[in-house]
Simulated scan of single mutants.
Amino acid sequence: MDIKQETNGTELTMFLSGRLDTVAAVDFEKALDAVSKDVTLLIVDCAELSYVASSGLRMFLRAQKRMNAQGKLVVRHVQESVMEVFSMTGFDSLLQIEN
């Protein structure tokens, strides 16, 4: 998986591409840990994310908890295969998902 980031003031967008599996979840966790306390809107763009494992879901939950404390999390451009996982696990009701 690859993670690219763009910052615009207090808004941070993370672009995820590839597979968010057990190994990649560690990289996503490090990226989340590095998010500044000044960020009030975290956007996770999943347009190029093709797969998410349970460890990846755990990182989305971690991001949601973090942003509940300091702002807002928005997940955008979720591919159908990833959306199916979100739907089956109930994450579609936990996360703010926009397309």
Rank of each mutant, 00 (worst) to 15 (best):
N99E: 12
M59Q: 15
L49W: 09
V75I: 15
D38E: 15
I43Q: 08
L57R: 07
G90K: 06
K30N: 13
F15G: 00
E48H: 11
Q79G: 09
T40V: 15
D33A: 10
M88N: 03
A69I: 08
A47V: 10
M59H: 06
G90N: 01
M83Y: 15
E80I: 09
R58T: 06
F91W: 13
E48R: 14
E98V: 14
S17D: 08
E11D: 11
F15I: 12
F60Q: 01
Q96R: 08
L32N: 02
V23Y: 15
T89I: 10
S17Q: 14
A47N: 10
S54Y: 08
S81H: 01
Y51S: 05
V85L: 02
T10D: 13
A31P: 01
R19A: 07
E48L: 10
L42S: 07
A31M: 03
I43D: 02
E98I: 13
E11I: 14
V82H: 01
K4P: 01
Q5L: 09
S81N: 11
D38V: 10
E84M: 09
A47Q: 14
I97W: 08
R19I: 04
Y51K: 02
T89V: 13
M83E: 11
D45N: 15
L61N: 03
V23A: 13
S55R: 02
M88G: 00
F91D: 08
G90S: 06
S50A: 12
S54E: 05
K37Q: 14
V39N: 03
L61K: 04
T7S: 05
A63C: 03
R58F: 08
